[in-house]
Amino acid sequence: MTITLQIDGKEVKAESGVTVLEAARQAGVHIPTLCEHDRLMPYGVCRICCVEVEKKGRKRIVVSCGYPVENGLVVTTRSPRIDRIRKVLIELVAPTAMADGLLAGEMKKIATEYGADIHRFESRFTGKPIRCILCGKCVRYCDEVVGKQAIGFVGRGVDRRAVFFPEQARACLTCEACFNLCPTGKIAADTDFVVFDGFSVDDYSSGEL
């Protein structure tokens, strides 16, 4: 069934069942994302793709990668409130995500576009820079698409980490499917070996990504 909604003032038609993010893309409206991938189930943890939706006069913030379209829904993808959320989210995650004081890839683009001061909370940061924002793209791709569980999450709260399970490492040597998914550029290819942040599978022992 086709329904009609409004995105940034434009009437947009979409198939019911698709998400607001998908509908926006079809309509040529760009919404930034970090944890979304078209072959993966919506996960909704980076929160960067948040938008404002209005229904029956009630406005609220939702993440567009998970929110299903509805007839008559009014969507705003940029507003001072949305822009501020995106800016502060990047500022908050930057100290964890940076490598050598720099952000890479999609993160860097979003930081520039939303005027995030990536050093804002740096002096307060007591954690360890892990060059990882826990978007779970690698974890979920490995699980959902490749059908393996060579990478997974451990720990909770501020100690949550994505780890690579060494006992599954052999599979990674020929797979390489999670390469180039990483928004911080942590996981990359290096000739025959899967390299996690400079460590090769063979000499990687602790398992922490």
Binding site: R47, L92, G157
Partner: peptide, 12 residues
């Protein structure tokens, strides 16, 4: 300690 740690606003 008690957050699941999944989403950026809560964790960070």
């Amino acid at each position: 300690d008690e957050s699941c740690g999944q989403c950026i606003p809560c964790r960070e």
